[in-house]
Amino acid sequence: METREKGDITTLLGAWQRGDPQASDRLARLIYPELRKIARGLMSVERADHTLQPTALIHEAYLRLVQQKRMLWQDRHQFFAISARIIQRILVDHARRRLACKRGGRIERVALAEVRDLAAQRPDLLVELDEALDTLEKLDPTQATIVRAKFFAGLTGVEIARATGLSPATVKRQWRLAKAWLFHELNHREGGLPDRVP
């Protein structure tokens, strides 16, 4: 199936950018195996010290998809944005599966303010975050993009600034505001303090 869709990737990217909902699914199916192979390759190489640079994954995927498949993408930063979305999907699906695996077992619910590594400590919140990001997307698409790139794809502020054309300072400010909003949102869903002071 991979081969069949290989040639379609440019078209798909175009369609995806135009907002075709089907394009995203098909792109994901195309990029999944590639990311998976790369991820495992990186894992086995870097297994010893457990420090894997997620950015390396995207670069590698980019190089493979772009060079091996002779695609001419004008802006590789665009690819980062696309990859970030795809990775988000992969991770959220992963979290769902993990939750399914653990059904019956108890997840230790670390308080949100105590969570350092959200994906590891509270995979259930990854699903919530995914939904909250959909809401944020509607309120402020730029902020949603920044969160996806930074949290899901592991891009740095500078890389995001390049990809989005924003200044690094803006990226930083927007990231902070988006984080506050998302934290509040998730905390609320968690049954935290009400957002209104009576």
Binding site: R36, R40, M43, L52, A113, F183, H184
Partner: peptide, 29 residues
């Protein structure tokens, strides 16, 4: 409310999700 959230959100989302996914072995379709 968001000011209060900001005060608690310093570490929130700072560790990318990808890392732990890769560490524990991805579950894929």
């Amino acid at each position: 409310a968001l000011l209060a959230a900001d005060a608690q959100a310093e570490e929130f989302l700072e560790i990318p999700a990808l890392g732990s996914w890769l560490d524990e072995g991805p579950i894929l379709p």
